[in-house]
Amino acid sequence: MDKLIDDEMLVAQFQAGRQNAFDELMKRYKSKIFSYLLRSVRNYEDAEDITIEVFFKAYRALENWQPKAKFSTWLYKIAANLVIDYHRAKARHPVYALEDMEIPEANLVATDQYSNPVKELEEKELGRIIRDAVDQLSPKQKAVFILNRYEGLQLKEVAETLGMAEGTVKIHLHRAMKRLQTILNPLWENNDI
């Protein structure tokens, strides 16, 4: 609750002409927005570009922003809309998607203190398979799943972010889970894990 007041106070300060208030808002939310975008587009460069775009748009719209919802929800909403645009553009230009210099999947995951390189590779491979499964969800299912599960947004906030009713959010979430179950079930049925 404190956070809500703080964010809104910062917005008010920004609206009153204190530019540093916007820096503080960026500092607070850049990691969250970045990680949401990285999970949504699975590409570092694009995620970074869209993160910049989110704050760029926020800066320009913040002057007239009214605190109807939480600031963070509004920010996620900008991000979610940009993700839709991104996937639309990708679908329209599939040639570019092939030509894109995608960062190898291995680079997307943290290297840590595994002692067994074979096990490490297996774990990374498993992680990739599971993330691929998440990417197979419909855009709405994936957005709902990621916002709720990994960004910690309440269903109500997810609804506001994606501009849908809370009931619809739940339907997408249930479908997402069932789909993931269908895709991933063979993994543990075949004792792969």
């Binding site: 599971i130 993330r131 998440v134 990994y150």
Partner: peptide
């Protein structure tokens, strides 16, 4: 499973 995979990001 998804938690494990997404935490690697």
């Amino acid at each position: 499973l998804t938690d494990m995979a997404e935490k690697e990001v």
